[in-house]
Structures are given as C-alpha cells and as structure tokens.
Amino acid sequence: MPTQQPRAKAPAKGLPQIIRDQLRYEILNGTMATGTQLRQDALAERFNTSRLPVREALRQLESEGLVTYQRNRGAVVAGMDVNQLCEIMDIRIALECHAAKIAVPNMVQRDFAHLQEILDLYNASESVAEWGEYNRRFHLALCAPANNTKLRRLIEEFCLNTDRYTHEMMSLATGKEGPQSDHFEILEACKQRDAARVAMLLERHIMETKNNLLATDRMKRENAAAGEDEDVRDAA
C-alpha cells in the first residue's frame, strides 16, 4: 500500500495581509467611516509592528478602492459617489450572472439548504445591519458552487464594496420584503436548475437596487435645491 502523503498546509497569512483584512473588515462594517485618517505610525503601534507592513496593507486596500490618499492627510477611508456605485453594480451584474450560470448546474441539496437557511435568518432579523450581512452571504453562497475561487473573490470585493454604501440606505427606504421576495424567487429557480432564469432574476434584482439608488440620489438633490430656493425667498 502506498504511503499516504501528508496534506499540504495552506500558507500562513503574512503580517500585511492580517493588517489589511482587519482594516478591510472595519471599513466595510462601518466602524471606520468615510474620511477617517489612517496614520501609519498609529496603525504600526496598534498592530505592534513597523510601518513597512502597514504601508503594504494600505497599498493593497488602495488597490481595492477602500483607501485613498489625500494631500496633507495621507491615507484615508475612501468614499464613493453615485456614479461610481452604479459602475460597480454594472460589474456585479456581469460577474454574478456569469457565476450563476456556472454554479446552478453544480448545486446539490446542501447548497439549497444553505441558501434557505440564510434567507430564514434574514426573515427573522429586525436589524438593518444584519440584513446587509445576510444579503452578502446569500449572494456569495449563490456563486460558490461555480467552484472558481478567483471569480468568487472578485464578486466578494465588489459585493462588499457596494453594500457598504448602499444596503443600509436601501433597506431603510424599501424594507426587506422586496429584496427577500427576489431572493426566494432566485432560490426557487436554482432548485429548478434553470440557470438562465437565475441569471435573469439576479440581473433584475441588482438593477432594481441601482435604480432605487439613483432615485434616492435624485430626490436628495431635488430636496436640497428646493431648500436653497426657499432660503433665497426668505432672504428676499
């Protein structure tokens, strides 16, 4: 009998990756707000290290669009305008719909049960922040059976980046009934192994969020303009 070779261990994360992952988590869950200054000396002291791994972690976060550099301030948590968010949603549609077409034929009963479990937790929650997390989990679980790690990583980054700015605002505006109805319809199409329908429903679902975002921004600008007009009339 041939000797069984020991399974190779996954390479341990380096210090820059550990710092990057922790800062990414804090940025995406809102602990670090847009505009927060990320001073290298303070972060080096926090993580008990030199500035070099901190600098590398910030560079990686900059490449993900989570950190930007400002004159006289250095690294800060990046913000996004509506046009940038809409561009990212278009990319999400392309990535997630492609992943769904690959994933659906590979799905087994365990995948359906996992998706159902996420939606049940979503239904039971009364926390807007938790709705965002369950939404993220559902979309990632949907693409996982595509068995493409690089594709999933891209989706995870764009999904997280978008949800950071949009999901709480959209949830407060629309509640969870509309998005959840979409999710259950997508799950049913998965069970029917109708990959084309899953991709179509997914595109419609993300487009609805995009259109709600544009409408919210439009109304905000209209209200601001109306307020300025009223101030002018009062001054007159």
Rank of each mutant, 00 (worst) to 15 (best):
P2G: 10
T3A: 11
T3V: 12
Q5K: 13
R7L: 12
P11F: 11
P11R: 15
P11C: 08
A12T: 10
K13H: 10
G14V: 09
L15N: 07
L15W: 06
P16A: 07
Q17M: 05
R20N: 08
R24C: 04
R24F: 06
E26Y: 11
L28W: 02
L28Q: 09
N29D: 14
T31A: 11
T31P: 03
M32H: 15
Q37I: 14
Q40F: 06
A42S: 14
A42W: 13
L43Y: 03
E45F: 04
T49M: 02
T49W: 01
S50T: 15
S50Y: 07
L52Y: 12
L52N: 13
L52F: 12
V54W: 04
L58S: 02
G65T: 07
Y69W: 13
Q70Y: 12
R73S: 15
G74D: 04
G79D: 07
M80L: 14
M80Q: 15
D81V: 05
D81P: 03
Q84M: 11
E87K: 14
I88A: 09
I88G: 02
L95Q: 00
C97G: 03
A100K: 01
V104E: 00
P105W: 10
P105R: 12
M107H: 03
A113I: 06
A113P: 03
A113V: 08
I118P: 02
N123H: 14
N123E: 14
A124H: 08
S125N: 05
V128P: 06
E133I: 10
E133F: 09
A141L: 01
L142S: 01
L142D: 00
C143W: 00
A144T: 09
A146P: 01
N147T: 06
T149H: 09
L151K: 02
R152A: 04
R153N: 08
R153T: 07
I155R: 00
E156P: 01
F158S: 05
C159S: 13
L160F: 09
D163L: 12
T166P: 01
M169I: 15
M169D: 13
M169R: 15
S171I: 05
A173W: 11
Q180K: 10
S181G: 15
I186E: 01
L187S: 01
E188F: 04
K191I: 10
R193H: 14
D194N: 15
A195G: 08
A196G: 13
A196I: 11
R197Q: 13
V198A: 00
A199Y: 00
R204M: 07
I206W: 00
I206K: 00
N211Y: 12
R218T: 09
M219R: 13
G227Y: 05
D229Y: 10
D231Y: 01
V232I: 06
D234M: 05
A236T: 02
A236Q: 01
